[in-house]
């Protein structure tokens, strides 16, 4: 009887959330899968089932492939910059926890992560500007040639990597700091008694012990970088007067196919591929974690 009452409460209490969840999360996810198998154009009345045709077309679509390559380059570029930097910075901040400036360090590193994307990207747009940006000014004042940061196909991707890393760093540092705080102090004490210096302790104790955290942060960073969009949108606005190179990323290509070419089904197929990438990354994370657990 009591159990029944509790069950009833649990169900009633969770029902509104569940309903919302099913409505704005589960249904659209399933719908994405369904749309990806249809030729579903916004404007046409006929929306036939076409099986895997959208996917077949995607892999011959130069723009999509370009987007896939750019996005992967951005995601892994961000990863390779962010993770080592975050490890070192968080180790240093942790080392100076007692410092009166610890709060300042944490805050300044974290602020880029919370500020709105568009204003932040605009600040960087000015920095990268070919003609009046300080980055080129700096390069020239040390005798290096100015670079067309936002125009060159490679440099414009690098510009986005820098911008995204700048934003992602704060989050990684924060998670690492939690990790550092949870490391057993006794281990460090012992190492110290054995005469291990700070760098040795960092390299031989902290880094291996923080491996699960590294794995977690890596996957989170990768996944969020695969969804990059606003940064590309702002850095290369296509207005007249100040042209910039459009760095085609997956979400941008998807939205263009959906809302410019009106091909919803095709865009949904791209979304499914994005989902597949994310799933794959998550599976890799779980796989690596489990492997580590066995050892």
């Amino acid at each position: 009887m009591l159990r029944w009452k509790r069950w009833r409460f649990a169900m009633l209490a969770i029902l509104p959330t569940l309903a919302i969840f099913a409505w704005v999360r589960m249904y659209p996810i399933v719908e994405t899968l369904r749309l990806s198998l249809h030729q579903w154009d916004i404007l046409s009345k006929n929306k036939p089932f076409i099986g895997l045709q959208n996917f077949r077309e995607l892999f011959q679509d130069q723009l999509f492939l370009e987007a896939l390559i750019n996005t992967s380059a951005i995601a892994f570029g961000v990863l390779f910059i962010t993770i080592p930097t975050a490890l070192v910075i968080s180790a240093l901040i942790y080392h100076r926890t007692r410092s009166r400036f610890a709060g300042f360090y944490e805050t300044t590193v974290f602020i880029p992560h919370i500020v709105s994307l568009v204003p932040a990207a605009m600040a960087w747009k000015w920095i990268f500007d070919a003609n009046l940006g300080p980055l080129n000014g700096l390069l020239q004042s040390v005798g290096l040639p100015a670079q067309p940061w936002l125009f060159d196909p490679v440099l414009s991707v690098i510009a986005i990597i820098i911008l995204c890393s700048w934003q992602a760093l704060g989050y990684a540092v924060l998670i690492y700091l939690v990790g550092f705080k949870n490391l057993p102090v006794s281990l460090f004490e012992a190492a110290k008694l054995d005469g291990a210096g700070g760098i040795a302790r960092f390299w031989y104790i902290s880094v291996p012990m923080l491996k699960p955290i590294t794995l977690y942060v890596s996957v989170v960073t990768l996944i969020s970088a695969f969804n990059v969009y606003a940064q590309a949108f702002v850095l290369a606005s296509d207005s007249q007067g100040a042209p910039g190179r459009q760095v085609r990323v997956l979400v941008l290509d998807m939205l263009e196919n959906a809302f410019r070419n009106y091909r919803i089904g095709y865009a949904a197929a791209e979304a499914v591929i994005l989902l597949a990438i994310v799933l794959l990354l998550t599976l890799v994370q779980f796989g690596l974690l489990r492997e580590k657990g066995r050892r």
Binding site: A130, F151, Q240, G241, A242, P243, R245
Partner: peptide
């Protein structure tokens, strides 16, 4: 002319 030069009506 080059890609990064100011262009169009503004220029």
């Amino acid at each position: 002319v080059s890609e990064q030069m100011p262009a169009d009506a503004e220029a």
